[in-house]
Amino acid sequence: MRATDRAEEILEELWILIKEKEINPVTVSDLSIDSKAPELKELLELRYINLSGERIDLTSKGLKEAEAAIRRHRLAERLMVDVFDIRRSLMEEKACQFEHLLRKEVEESICTLLGHPKVCPHKRPIPPGKCCAKALKHPKSIVSSLAEIEAGSKSIVAYLITRDERKLQKLMSMGVLPGVRIDVIQTYPSHVFRIGHSLVAVDTEMAEDIFVRRVK
């Protein structure tokens, strides 16, 4: 039996509070629902959570389920932004609807399509799935970091990792922007690529922040 969409969202909320915000202990009042909400009852029945008074905890089963839900949510966001190019302002709503449609098999293919992204568009980490571990050994996804692209391949910038603004600004000043064509010319000792009509050389650290989609 699966949790309802609404219960799944509560599960995600709980996971973020415990794992990312590191709140301990989490009480029902920290959540967006009250203690009589049906979602809580549902999660209790599924044995995803334990309730002792106001205090609320994730069971190990619940933890796993919550992590998977977070992963689907953030993958959905990446998909919206990188592939569907949905306006960022609309992204949240669409992603919320979409994540519930992502089931296991689809989730893995989408993750692969996106190149096993490590962070969502809000820069929060995406919990890795089994496919991510496999991909580390065979990096052949459609979208991958420029650091993994071999010389001679042609590609288009899908997105830039925007966590480090220092790197981001440098890349943008070189003209590395989503939608721009990049042809990799050489990968050692530095990554050299042609962008527009100029050649740019960057080190591996910079190349890792450029995610590209291969083209034929």
Partner: peptide, 11 residues
Amino acid sequence: EKPLFYMEVPP
């Protein structure tokens, strides 16, 4: 900070 390398290579 660790240095970063990025450079335009002129023709």
